[in-house]
């Protein structure tokens, strides 16, 4: 007897496990999972659509012919639809926000904010002076971006997205950052 009872119990248990698996698989239609945390790029997109409110383009005032406030991605697009969703229906400096993908740095003249994709990491050194000359706010999540001369670097602090600022780079690009923005930065660099 002693030998049989455990075997029956094992079978029963295996059956319970199998049933439980099957039931949970069947009830797919009624499932709702807890809303998963957003991806880092969803939050980064939200930052990009927000930064414009805290920046003055002192060297490059808004001209009447400027129809939209363009947030541009230079290089591979890591956002997918997240950036388009983030700018939809928003406006900054009384201009509607628009997301643009550009492949040449020359196209940046039509942009107010340029997000430099990590795919351009090796070209950053050459591209950044041109973006400064164009008077755009440069943002990126590539490592050492502010150190390399970019204005705002999005950084992961733990699993939260924060940002660092290079004030000297902002000055070179002719953009003035509000004190509110500076207060929220995890680091503010004043040297070049």
């Amino acid at each position: 007897m002693r030998g049989v009872a455990p075997i029956i119990r094992i079978r029963l248990l295996s059956r319970v496990i199998c049933c439980a698996l099957a039931i949970s698989a069947l009830s797919a239609g009624h499932l709702y999972a807890q809303s998963p945390p957003p991806t880092d790029y969803q939050v980064k997109a939200a930052y990009l659509s927000n930064f414009g409110r805290f920046v003055e383009w002192t060297r490059r005032p808004f001209a009447p012919e400027e129809q939209s406030f363009n947030v541009c991605i230079l290089g591979d697009d890591p956002f997918g639809p997240a950036l388009d969703a983030a700018v939809a229906g928003e406006s900054v400096h009384r201009l509607p926000l628009a997301a643009r993908r550009i492949s040449k740095v020359q196209d940046a003249a039509a942009c107010r904010i340029v997000f430099l994709s990590s795919s351009e990491s090796s070209a950053a050194k050459a591209v950044l002076p041109q973006l400064e000359a164009a008077g755009v706010l440069t943002v990126s999540d590539m490592s050492q971006f502010t150190r390399r001369g970019g204005v705002i670097e999005l950084v992961l602090v733990g699993n939260k997205v924060r940002f660092e600022i290079n004030l000297a780079a902002a000055e070179r690009a002719g953009v003035t950052l509000s004190s509110e923005l500076l207060k929220l930065a995890v680091a503010v660099r004043k040297a070049p």
């Binding site: 945390p37 969803q42 805290f54 992961l156 699993n159 929220l184």
Partner: peptide, 25 residues
């Protein structure tokens, strides 16, 4: 795929609030 509703929720947040959102990478 990013959840569009989630993006709408993020839009309503201030910069300070954005900095406290936990993200997956």
């Amino acid at each position: 795929q990013p959840d569009p509703n989630q993006q709408a929720h993020l839009k309503g947040l201030t910069l300070a609030e954005l900095g406290n959102i936990e993200v997956t990478t």
